[in-house]
Design a protein around this nucleic acid. Structure first.
Lengths: 140, 140
DNA sequence: GTTACTGCAAACGGTTTGCACTGTC
DNA sequence: GACAGTGCAAACCGTTTGCAGTAAC
C-alpha cells in the first residue's frame, strides 16, 4: 500500500506537482477504494480518519490529477462525478443498485478503427459504461 | 414536419400526458434540430421565435418525456445534459470542436450477451459516446 | 369541474473561484 | 525566499421545487 503510494508520488513529481499531505491523503483513499468515488465520498472517508481537508482542495486536486492523467473522471452517476486512479483504458459494469463496479476490457478497438476509416473523423476517445444488477442485489 | 409533430402528439396522449402548446413547442424544436440540445439551447431557440416558456417548464417536460421514453438524456457535455427525441437505440460520434453529431448503430449487442453470460449480472443498459474531430473542423 | 400543467421565484447541490495565508522545494 | 498549494467563504450555474393561477380534458 505504501509502496503503491510512493509510485504515485513519483508520478506526481514527474509532472511537476508538489507532494503535499493533502494529495497523499486523497490518493490513499482512492488506492484503498474498491470503486470510483465522488469528491464528497473522498471527503467522508478522510473525515472518518480525522483528516481535515476542504472540499475545494479535493476538487482542485482531482482536477489537476485529471489534467495530468493521474485520475479518470467517470460519469456513471447522474448527480456527481466519480473519480478513479488511472490504471489504463478500460470500462465499467456498474450495479445500478449497490454501485459495485466490475472492470471490463475495451471491446471497441476494431470498431474505432473501422469508424475512422468510414467517417473521416479523427477519433479522440470514447466513453462506455454498462449498467446492470449484480448477483447479490438480484437475490435480495 | 407537422405530420411528424402529430405523431409525437399521439405518443404523448397514449402515455396519458396532456397536449399543451408548451410541449408542442419543445418537441418542435427538438424535431427541427440536427443535434441534441440542452434545456438552455431549447429556451434560446424558442425565444428567437417569440415563444415564452420558462426554463422550469422545459426541464419539467424533458423529465416527463424522459420517463416516458419520448426523449433520451445524453451526457455528451461536461456541463449540461443534452436531449434528443427517442428514435431507437443508437450512439453518437460527437465533434469535440463544433458539436456536430453523427448517429451510429450499436456495435455492442454481442458483447452485451457475452457479458451477461460471463458475469451473472443482469444487463440493463449501456451508454457509449465517441468523441472526435469532424472533417470540417480538421481543415480549419 | 377536476386535475394536470405552467409561471414565477426561491432554493438546492455539485463545483469553482478569489484571496490571504502556509508549506514545499 | 519564491511560488505552488490550501483554507475559507462566497459565488456560480444547471437543475429542482413549492405554490398559486391557468388551461386541457
Amino acid at each position: 500500500m505504501d509502496e503503491k503510494l510512493s509510485i504515485w508520488k513519483q508520478k506526481l513529481k514527474k509532472k511537476g506537482l508538489r507532494w503535499t499531505k493533502q494529495r497523499a491523503a486523497i490518493l490513499k483513499v482512492l488506492l484503498a477504494s474498491e470503486r470510483p468515488l465522488s469528491a464528497q465520498e473522498i471527503l467522508l472517508r478522510l473525515q472518518s480518519q480525522n483528516s481535515k481537508l476542504r472540499l475545494s482542495t479535493i476538487y482542485r486536486n482531482l482536477n489537476y490529477f485529471e489534467q495530468e492523467q493521474v485520475v479518470n473522471l467517470l460519469q456513471i452517476d447522474q448527480k456527481e462525478n466519480k473519480f478513479e486512479l488511472n490504471n489504463g483504458h478500460h470500462h465499467h459494469l456498474v450495479c445500478a443498485d449497490c454501485e459495485e463496479v466490475l472492470v471490463l476490457d475495451c471491446p471497441l478497438q476494431n470498431f474505432e478503427k473501422q469508424l475512422s476509416g468510414k467517417t473521416d473523423y479523427t477519433i479522440l476517445e470514447h466513453r462506455l459504461n454498462i449498467f446492470g444488477i449484480c448477483p447479490d442485489c438480484k437475490s435480495k
